[in-house]
Each structure stands twice: as C-alpha cells, then as structure tokens.
Nucleic acid binder design. Structure first.
Lengths: 223, 223
DNA sequence: ACGCTCCTCAAGTAATGTCTTGAATATAAT
DNA sequence: ATTATATTCAAGACATTACTTGAGGAGCGT
C-alpha cells in the first residue's frame, strides 16, 4: 500500500482519461455526442475527418471509457458513456474559458463578434415558453433533434433555415438554440432571422445544458 | 463565422487544456496543488521526479492556464488557477472511477483492499465535531496543513504518526483525513491507530472536498 | 561582489500520437 | 451465395511528448 509505482500507475490511468479528451478532433466528437448518439459516418462528416480516422478516435474515446457503442444493422452508434462525461466536458470548457489565454480570440474567430448578439437564458426562455409568446427553433442537424430537443421546439437545421423561414409564425419572437455556447449554428440563425425582419435571440447555451438542468425535453419527432 | 479551420483551432484549444491533465505526473501535481500552494522542490519530491522535469510539467500546466505562480524570495510557489480547476479534477476522477475498466484494480493496488476500512462521511463528521466526541487528525505533509485544514484538526503527518500517537487523546474516536479518496495516507493512519488499540475511521474523501462543501476551514497553524 | 539556493532552459534520445492509404471484417439486401 | 454498405484494422510518414543531463538566470545573505 502506498508505493510509488502503484501510485504512478493509478494517476497514469486518470491521465489516460484526460488524454482521450486531449485532442481537438476527439473534443469535437464529445461535443457532438453530448447532443445524442450518432453513427460513425455522420460523426466523420461533423468533424471533417476521414471515416477511418474518426473510427480510430472513437476507439480511443471508447478505450478511455468515455463512449460506448450500440449496433443496429450495419450501423454502429456511439454515445457518451454517461451524463458524467458531459459534466466533465462542461467543466473542461469552463476552465478553458476562464484560464486559457487565447481562447477568447479563438472563439471570436470561429463565432464572430458576439457584442451585439441578443441572448436569452434558460430561466427566461422557460417563462416565455410557459406564457406562449415565443417560438423556439432547434437549428442543429436533424439526427440531433431526433435524439432529444427542448419540448415544443421546431426543427429547422441551419442549412435549411433560409428556405424554410416562412414555416415560422411571424409577429412573435423567435429563439434559436443549438449545441452549446461554442456552437455557431444559433448565432447564424439569429443573423438570418433578423435579416428577414424577425425578432430573434439565441439561447445562451444549448440543448445539453437544458437537459442537464432537468427542463422539459422531448425525443419524439416533431415538425 | 463557422468555418472548419477556426472550429478546429477552437477545439484544439479545449484539447490543450485536457492534454495538460493527460499525463500521470501532471495529474499528481494537480492533486497535490488541490491541497494548496507548494514550491517546486516540494512538488518534485511529492511526485518522485527530478526538479527539472517537475518544472517542465508545471510549465505545461501553467501554459494551459491550470496553475499560476507567485514568487517569494528564491522560491516560486505554484497553485491552481482557481477552484474551477479543482472541479475539473474532481470531474475527471469521477468519470475515470465510473468508466475506466482497470481503475478499480489500479486503485486497489495502490490503496490496498478497502473492504474492511471504516469510513465516515462529511455530514457525520460535522455532527460529531459539533458534539465534540471525535478527534480529527490531518495526516498530510505539514505544508498542506498550513495551507488549509479542517477546523479543529490536529496535524500529524503520516510518517510521524507512529511516534506521536501518544499526543492524541485516548478513549475517543479518531478520524483521519488526507488529500482525497485516492490518497493512501488516511488509510494507513487508520491501520496504525487500530493497531495501537484506538478506535479510528477515515474521512471518505479529503480536504479539498471539505473546503469545496463550504465546511469550516482554518489556515492558521495549530497543534 | 561573491557564493548559495532555487528554479528554468536547452539539447538529445526513446517512445508515443496523428493522419493517410488500402485491405479486412461484419451485417444486410439481392 | 453474392454483392453492397458500414466500420475497423494495419502499415507507414511525420510530428510531438517525456525524461535526462548539464548549463544559465534570479534573488538572498555575507
């Protein structure tokens, strides 16, 4: 009990879990999987990598215990091993946002200047939803909406928003949401909506945070 | 906004923070620093590495924003950048414990079989402390006690416990605590105390968790 | 100014990680 | 059975990481 070698081995094991998150592509995978399960093909497209490389990264995550798999026919679906993994991912983002010097610049380079972006927090959205004076749009890809979404939200993936904007009722404020605070989909949705003269804001974070707060969620397929 | 290259760079930055934790020696450093600030010499001894290598690892942690420094004369003290870093470390341990297949074996190899080890949780310890029918012993190294400890605890570093056991009042239960759930000091303390015929248990986790729960803490030097 | 202590930096080596390409496997559909 | 689709595996090029040794810099006390 208490010898150096065993202690090093134990902490190496903790390190292995962190190492699994220690790659940008794997971090992207975890961010996508926090929305719900996906199969390899889709994941490869999401992170812009080859299927072989994506498969390799998924195996690294699986070996670290961060994700598990389910087979359905020829497809293999990956998902986070538990909500704790999502918590770990949130904690990592928090620390990076608080202490990583260049993170603000990198976020601004990806998301653009959010100075004028109108946001709404979970509490207010919940109130407005109850009052019925708001329309909520889920602008994530369809499979993520199918895997789970804010109760009452409409699914319009961001790349279809311009074409389907007429499906949304006018004269009522629209709230767009996506994967989380570092996802650009909702930002872009707000831009598109405002350009068309709609009143629009984005939810400050995304679906995982909403679900984590135990707010109402649906998994059935809605409009 | 939203282009691949910028997104990859952003998630690479998240990955860098995780990568900083993705090494057993750096994980040990974070675990020690969660107890309070220490200087390089001590840290090198704690993780069983050369001073040069320890300095290197500390710089990696500093570059990732996980630790900061303070100079005092010839010494440079390192500390966690904020309590969020401690939260991240806790989340990492939780995930590893829940999902890493070999972690239980590695923990058992380092800590020994805890099957018969009597433990006490924070709530019960708090009650017993208020009732005054328990003696609390901090068995961490002296600098960690000085940096912060459970209010009313006595400091007897584990390597002095056998010699100083007579300083502890007999006929009253003793509770030992240390750095956390994966620290062997308190386990060993319980063994030593029981061998001497004392009634003893260990706190399930350690000082960082106690402090995080906003329970009473002292930093002054006590007995 | 000098030596002392504490810490960081640089160079070098062995090991490991990332991504590509092309082949191999497993299940489903024909 | 055979073919098609989805995923994994293997090999190789290239970059990065971990640790050692020895030199260099910063502050303190004499």
């Amino acid at each position: 009990m208490g010898d150096r070698q065993a202690k090093d081995a134990l902490f190496d094991a903790f390190g292995e879990v962190a190492k699994a998150l220690g790659n940008g592509r794997r971090a992207e995978l975890v961010d996508v999987l926090a929305q719900g399960e996906r199969h390899v093909d889709e994941l490869a497209a999401e992170i812009g990598q080859s299927v072989a490389n994506t498969s390799f990264h998924l195996r690294v995550l699986a070996n670290a215990g961060l994700v598990t798999t389910r087979r359905d026919g020829t497809r293999i679906y990956y998902r986070l091993a538990s909500t704790r993994v999502g918590d770990l991912w949130s904690a990592l983002r928090d620390v990076a946002a608080a202490h990583h010097e260049q993170l603000d610049d990198l976020a601004a380079a990806y998301l653009g200047d959010r100075g004028r972006l109108e946001q709404i927090d979970r509490c207010e959205l919940m109130e407005r939803l109850a009052a019925g004076d708001v329309v909520v749009v889920d602008v994530r890809p369809a499979p993520e909406f199918a895997a789970g979404h804010i109760s009452g939200a409409h699914s319009i993936p961001i790349d279809q928003l311009a074409a389907r904007i007429k499906d949304l009722p006018a004269g009522i404020e629209t709230v767009a949401y996506c994967r989380g605070p570092y996802c650009a989909f909702a930002d872009e949705a707000v831009l598109v909506l405002r350009r068309r003269g709609r009143s629009a804001r984005r939810l400050v974070d995304g679906f995982p945070e909403w679900a984590q707060a135990n707010l109402p969620v649906d998994t059935a397929i809605a409009s």
